[in-house]
Design a protein around this nucleic acid. Structure first.
Length: 476
DNA sequence: GCAAAAATAT
DNA sequence: CATATTTTTG
C-alpha cells in the first residue's frame, strides 16, 4: 500500500494497523489520510505500540530457538543467548538510551539512522585524514574537519576503523611496498563508488581486491624494464574516475589545480613526525640538498618484502605511508615541489578548518626548484638503482616483526669508495647486507648476488620509498 | 546465508 | 580512543 522509510518508527505502526483495520472493515485498501491516522491513533492495540521492545525480544529469541510464533510476547525474559561457543561473549546489547517499559522509550527511537558514506562524504573523510595526518588522526578531529552536522563521532570512528583495517590489509598483502596516500585513498574511495558507470569492476570481487588488482592506476613499466630502473614516468591515470575524484587525487598537479574543480579542499597533509621511530621529538630537518652530491657512501631506508627473508619484518608501521600526495609526470618530477610542501607542514599541528577555507595552493613560482632531489632526472643518468641518490641516514629503531612475507624497512646502502658504485640491501637493525643489488657486481662473499628483481616491478617504489626515507630519518 | 558496512559495546 | 562484537544491509 505504500512505503515506510526505514528506520521504522513506532509511530509508523499505527498506520500499518490502520491499513489493516480499514481493509478488514471495508474490504479494500485505503491510503493513509489525515482522517485515517487520527482513527489509528485512538485504536492501536497495546501490543503494537510496544513493538520496538517486541522486536528486540523476537530477534533475540529467533537467534536462539528460532521461535517465531509468539509474536505477542512482550518483555519476555527468555532472551539470554544460548551460546554454542564457550569462548564467545554472551552479552545482551541494549539500545542506546535503554528502552524502559514505560511509554517514554517510544518517543526516543532507539536506533540511529544508518549513515551512508556517499562519495562526497568519503572524500571529505579522506581529506580529513590527509589534512590531519594518518598517524595523528582520531575520530574527533575528523569530525571537526568534516563539519557535517549529522555525523557523529561514532559514525566517524566506525568508518575510521574500517579505513584502518583496509590500510593494514593493503600493507600486509604486500602488493605495494609503499603507497602514497593518494594511492591508498583512491583505492579506498573505490569502495564507495556507487555510480553505475563505475561498476565494470568484477562485482563478485571484494572492493579492496578489486582495487589491488586494478593496475591501471599505476603506470606500466617502460621498455620492458622495471619502472624502477627507468627514468620515464608516466603520470598516474585516473581514467575510470570521474573528475571530482581526480581533483582530489592529483593534489600536486599544478595545471589542474584550481581549474574549475569542485573539490579544492585541503590538499596538503600535515606531515607528522610524532610517531616516527625517533628518540627525540624535536623537529628535524628533513631536507638539505647540497650535501647529497658529494657523498661517497650513503644509506637510505626503504620498504622491503618477504623476499628478504624472515628477519626482514616489521609491524604495521604505516605512519609514513600517509604522506602528502603528489603526481609524477613523464620526465618531470614534482619532487622538489613535494619537498617544499613537506617543509611547510613540518610543524603543522592539528588545526581544524572548514574545508572551504583550507584550499592552500602552493605557489609554484615561489618554490625553490631543488634539482638535487629530482629523482627522475637522476634516474635518467644512471643505470643503477634509483635510490642511489638517497643520502639519508636511516633510523635503526624500526620494530622487527616475526612473520615471513611481511614487510619491513630495509637499508639500501650505496658505497662509492672504491670508485665503483655498489649497492646492497641490508637489515635495518645492524645494517647487515642481505644481498647485493648490483646486477653486475658481486659485493663480497657473504652477500649473495641478487638476481631476482621481480619485486621491483611491484610498486611505485621510487618516489614513495625515497619520501619515506626522508621522513623517517635524520639528515645525513 | 554470506560478507561488508555500520552501529554499538567494551 | 581503539578495538571487539553485534546488527543491518546488499
Amino acid at each position: 500500500m505504500g512505503f515506510i522509510p526505514k528506520p521504522i518508527a513506532p509511530t509508523d505502526l499505527p498506520k500499518i494497523y490502520q491499513f489493516a483495520l480499514t481493509y478488514k472493515r471495508n474490504g479494500k485498501s485505503t491510503l493513509s489520510t489525515e482522517q485515517n491516522q487520527k482513527d489509528a491513533n485512538v485504536s492501536v492495540p497495546q501490543q503494537i505500540m510496544l513493538v520496538p521492545e517486541q522486536a528486540y525480544v523476537l530477534k533475540t529469541k529467533k537467534k536462539n530457538c528460532s521461535s517465531k510464533s509468539d509474536t505477542r510476547t512482550v518483555n519476555s525474559t527468555n532472551v539470554s543467548h544460548v551460546s554454542t561457543n564457550g569462548s564467545r561473549k554472551n552479552r545482551k546489547r541494549k539500545p542506546k538510551g535503554g528502552p524502559s517499559d514505560d511509554g517514554e522509550s517510544l518517543s526516543q527511537p532507539p536506533k540511529k539512522k544508518k549513515i551512508w558514506w556517499t562519495n562526497p562524504l568519503q572524500d571529505l573523510f579522506l581529506q580529513a585524514i590527509q589534512h590531519i595526518g594518518y598517524d595523528k588522526v582520531v575520530p574527533k578531529k575528523i569530525l571537526a574537519f568534516m563539519n557535517v552536522p549529522y555525523l557523529t563521532r561514532e559514525n566517524v570512528a566506525s568508518h575510521l576503523q574500517k579505513y584502518r583495517i583496509f590500510v593494514k590489509r593493503v600493507v600486509h598483502q604486500g602488493r605495494f611496498s609503499m603507497l602514497s596516500d593518494r594511492g591508498i585513498d583512491s583505492m579506498f574511495r573505490q569502495t564507495h563508488i556507487k555510480e553505475p558507470y563505475f561498476n565494470y569492476y568484477t562485482p563478485s570481487t571484494s572492493w579492496y581486491e578489486t582495487s589491488l588488482n586494478n593496475r591501471s592506476f599505476y603506470s606500466e613499466s617502460v621498455h620492458g624494464q622495471s619502472r624502477l630502473l627507468s627514468e620515464a614516468r608516466e603520470p598516474v591515470r585516473y581514467n575510470q574516475i570521474s573528475y571530482n575524484y581526480m581533483n582530489r587525487s592529483a593534489t600536486y598537479e599544478p595545471h589542474r589545480i584550481g581549474s574549475g574543480s569542485t573539490l579544492t579542499l585541503p590538499i596538503q597533509s600535515n606531515i607528522s613526525f610524532e610517531n616516527q621511530p625517533s628518540q627525540n621529538e624535536e623537529t628535524r630537518t628533513v631536507f638539505e640538498p647540497p650535501v647529497m652530491a658529494n657523498k661517497i657512501s650513503q644509506t637510505s631506508q626503504v620498504l622491503g618484502f618477504g623476499q628478504l627473508g624472515p628477519s626482514a619484518i616489521s609491524g604495521h608501521n604505516f605512519n609514513t605511508n600517509m604522506m602528502s600526495s603528489y603526481e609524477m609526470q613523464s620526465g618531470t618530477s614534482h619532487f622538489s615541489y613535494e619537498m617544499q610542501s613537506v617543509l611547510n607542514n613540518e610543524n603543522a599541528t592539528y588545526n581544524p578548518e572548514p574545508p572551504a577555507n583550507a584550499t592552500t595552493q602552493p605557489n609554484l613560482d615561489e618554490l625553490p626548484q631543488l634539482e638535487n632531489l629530482n629523482l627522475y632526472n637522476d634516474l635518467a643518468n644512471t643505470s643503477e638503482v634509483p635510490y642511489s641518490i638517497s643520502n639519508f641516514q636511516f633510523d635503526d629503531n624500526k620494530k622487527q616483526g616475526e612473520e615471513d612475507g611481511d614487510w619491513t624497512f630495509v637499508n639500501i646502502n650505496q658505497d662509492q669508495s672504491n670508485g665503483e658504485t655498489s649497492n646492497t640491501i641490508a637489515t635495518p637493525e645492524t645494517n647487515t647486507p642481505i644481498f647485493n643489488i648490483n646486477p653486475n657486481q658481486n659485493q663480497g662473499q657473504a652477500v649473495p648476488e641478487f638476481t631476482d628483481w621481480s619485486f621491483l616491478d611491484q610498486q611505485e617504489l621510487v618516489d614513495d620509498d625515497f619520501m619515506n626515507s626522508l621522513f623517517n630519518n635524520d639528515m645525513n
